[in-house]
Write a protein that binds this DNA or RNA. Structure first.
Lengths: 370, 370
DNA sequence: TTGAAAGCGCTAACAG
DNA sequence: CTGTTAGCGCTTTCAA
């Protein structure tokens, strides 16, 4: 036995030795490039089998300057939105024999920068990033400078030229609120994660809706814009107290915002702008012992299974999350393979799924401001 | 400018050139090994900054024979159980500066083998595997032979010496069913993913509960055993029609199994053995328009948020899933760092969380077998 | 303290 | 068709 120490994995050298050929021949036989005589090829294959040889992708990657691995920087894999997104990305990558390294930022931009760095060190072939809130884009520019393809998902980043795959949040929200208005609602509250900053911008100059829209690429902002647009179209004045900001991203915060709101009168409908906000809003209404949709309608976001399990089942905006992930992977891999098309925002359609949590307002919107 | 072509990422050579030192010195200065004069060190650091240099981990990995990356082979990251598990693993790995490659098997052993191979090719430092159903363990043995640490999670694999981190499913199920029996239930159905094979083994020799327990390491099997144990203790004979097998892993299948069961009389309580089965069971009861817990009690598995959102909120067995993941990572990283302790099954405690979906049977279990 | 050179495992260019 | 050799970027002897 001329095999090496045992604990380590066999290399092509070991295979070559055992087959009695040169490393080059062994390589050719196994990786299938160049020509090898049938006899030797067989010998090599046997040796490889016997040793349980697997080519070392590190070495290969180093030569070929590609790792067949992409990095995903998401908020929190535990959030069903990201879980599904990552599944989509995984599937898209698997189709092209590419693996996926997943990292979480918990929506913190500092962590995001670090993760991007780490993945760069690992020489991933490209990155799919759900960008955290923040203004720092230096790390993205570094990526571009070094020629590492980058695809944003769910929303894009101002001033970073890159592809993006997302949903038209403004349009989705607008359609949702249109629907509520069509039902007869006039006092509609939005529960969103929009930051204080976005909110402030808007409150300072409410007429500048369109500007606001371009100012923020975030879904929370876009969805707020859609909400406002729908109201505006219908000639319903927006009201400050109907813009509920969770001010921090958690169902708990959304819950607080909702229950607090109802201490000062009651909107007849609630529109929640993502799955976490929807949980908070739903729990809020339950805690207040309000009947859905009799006392208040609830329109949620993301067609997760639980929204069909609760009573009543929720009317929601459904996003094609798996598809979002798959497409992000596809776009990224095309870039990696050298596509030079102009950068593009790909927008996937959402769908309003009407179930039991929305109905016309029962009382004629008697809002009492205590 | 002596920098290289631009599109590629800078190497230590580029840094060295720009700083006017040798590659070795640049390396020493940056990675902090060996000694470098203060002056040169500064020069090198500047050059590195200017170029946006990141050491190439592939090269480093090749030298050091470790990648600081582990592989996770899970069923389906979209399943909240796995999403949370992977989050736990990620957190555990992050604590020790290790990244995670995630792959899905969809519970298919062929895919599992392939994924293990791929990860081996990438030279991950170790693997955390949620083993798919099946008897093939060759790929695991190959891992062991090549000295790649392996930790099983959620259940272990017979005949594969390796660490495992899991929950005592039999005990958890036993406690759950104990509780139902304590409430006065006598006709308790279990909704599980236990395979036809397990079921057959058991049905062929129902007395061999203990053998069955050791025969299968799967949670579904273990939970079935716990269920049977509880019945036995209480002197309640098990009944074939109360063992509902989803025969395929999906909420849809569980749903069918449940609704079919109620065509031939009605058990007074249902025990579902994981989160997917719980969804199917819950939907089944709703479709049958049975009142929970008045007509039938439901005891689910996994304390996911939705179980608190539905009406009534579900009594569940809660598993420390995040902790499971964290510990799996820890155990694996200890192995990677050379721990030579005997292999061990670590068992984390579950907790029965009583909420509104369980109560004593209303009618005195008048089961009518049509 | 610094530099030169070898080597991790692979592939590719070049000889034979 | 097969073998020799060089080199991917890094770390680590070994000399100077």
């Amino acid at each position: 036995m001329t095999d090496r120490a045992g604990s380590s994995q066999p290399t092509i050298r070991d295979v070559a030795l055992r087959a009695g050929v040169s490393r080059a021949t062994a390589g050719r036989a196994l990786a299938g490039y160049g020509n090898v005589g049938e006899e030797l090829r067989l010998k090599v294959e046997n040796a490889s089998q016997e040793l349980g040889y697997r080519p070392n992708d590190l070495a290969r990657s180093m030569r070929e300057n590609r790792t067949r691995t992409i990095g995903v920087v998401c908020g929190d894999i535990e959030n069903p939105f990201f879980a599904r997104l990552v599944r989509g990305i995984s599937d898209g990558a698997a189709l092209r024999d590419v693996e996926v390294i997943v990292t979480n930022t918990d929506e913190d931009q500092l962590r995001e920068q670090k993760k991007v760095d780490v993945l760069l060190g690992k020489r991933v072939d490209g990155l799919i990033v759900y960008p955290a809130r923040g203004n720092n884009i230096e790390h993205f520019h570094r990526l571009k400078r070094q020629g590492v393809p980058l695809v944003f998902v769910d929303h894009s980043m101002r001033n970073v030229p890159a592809d993006a795959v997302m949903v038209d949040g403004a349009r989705a929200a607008e359609a949702a609120v249109d629907y509520l208005i069509g039902l007869g609602h006039e006092s509609i509250a939005i529960v969103s994660e929009a930051s204080r900053a976005t909110e402030a911008t808007f409150l300072a100059d409410p007429e500048a809706i369109h500007d606001l829209e371009t100012a923020t690429q975030r879904q929370s902002g876009a969805r707020l814009v859609g909400y406002l647009r729908a109201l505006q179209k219908a000639g319903i004045p927006w009201r400050r107290e109907n813009i509920l900001s969770s001010d921090g991203y958690s169902a708990e915060r959304a819950f607080s915002a909702v229950t607090k709101r109802f201490q000062h009168g009651a909107p007849s409908a609630l529109f929640a702008t993502d799955n976490v906000m929807t949980i908070g809003a739903f729990r809020g209404l339950k805690a207040l012992e309000l009947a859905i949709p009799d006392d208040v309608s609830l329109l949620g976001f993301d067609d997760l299974e639980w929204t069909r399990l609760v009573t009543p089942p929720l009317t929601v905006v459904s996003q094609p999350v798996l598809e979002l992930g798959r497409m992000a992977a596809e776009v990224l891999l095309d870039r990696i393979d050298g596509s030079t098309d102009a950068f593009m925002n790909r927008t996937l359609p959402t769908e309003l799924i009407v179930r039991g949590s929305t109905a016309g307002p029962r009382r004629s919107a008697t809002e009492v401001t205590a």
